[in-house]
Amino acid sequence: MNDNVVDLQTAWLHNGFGVANDVPSLLQAASDAGANTVDSKLFYYEAYEQEIETDGWSIDPSGWRPLTAAPSAGVETAVVPPEASWLTALIGYDVVVFGDYLEHSPLSCNSIAGEAKVNAHCLFETLEEAQAAIANGVFGGGCEDGVYQIFSVSTVEVEAGA
């Protein structure tokens, strides 16, 4: 568990996906919050272009719709992908719940990872596995209500001096 997590939503620095637009913005927010970023890991997220809404009990697999931005975004969504010279590694796919903002991952927060096939990072290996878990009701039965979105999760190693 890392206690040096910067809460971009409290600082109103999150975009329509609930995260920072770029590395410099994230590092500035960390500095402003007094967070120690030495030996920190950065993660880069990409959102799947569709989302699905649930009442927490059941999910209609035909209910996929185009992705919508979080209404509470504090900054314009203008994502800057990692520089080509930075090392990135895809570590899996997460299913996250949105209400008015990015809330959390039911895989870990609701112990769904105990029922679903996940990797060592508590993530699905593929987008198709995440989609299938949603379609097959893994997140039903009283899990979480809200809008479910799928994010790819990659680690990022920023080039020295960047």
Rank of each mutant, 00 (worst) to 15 (best):
A30L: 02
L67C: 02
A120V: 13
L27Q: 07
N119I: 02
G34Y: 05
A33D: 14
P71C: 04
T68I: 11
V75N: 01
A33L: 00
N36G: 10
N21R: 06
L26P: 03
L102W: 15
G16K: 00
D94A: 15
T10A: 10
N119A: 05
V75D: 03
V95W: 02
L42K: 02
L107N: 06
V95M: 15
Q9M: 11
V5G: 05
D22Q: 08
W64A: 02
S108N: 15
K41S: 13
P71R: 08
I59Y: 09
A47N: 10
Y93D: 04
Y101D: 12
P81C: 11
E51N: 04
D100W: 15
V5R: 07
S25V: 01
W12K: 06
V97E: 11
V96W: 06
V75I: 05
S62M: 09
S85Q: 14
A120C: 00
A33P: 04
S105V: 03
G92M: 09
Q9H: 00
I59T: 14
A11Y: 04
N15F: 08
S31I: 01
W57G: 10
N110D: 13
W57N: 15
A69G: 09
G63V: 02
S40K: 02
W57L: 00
F98W: 14
A73R: 13
G92W: 01
S105A: 11
L107I: 13
S58N: 13
Y48W: 14
V79H: 10
A69E: 14
F124D: 00
L107C: 11
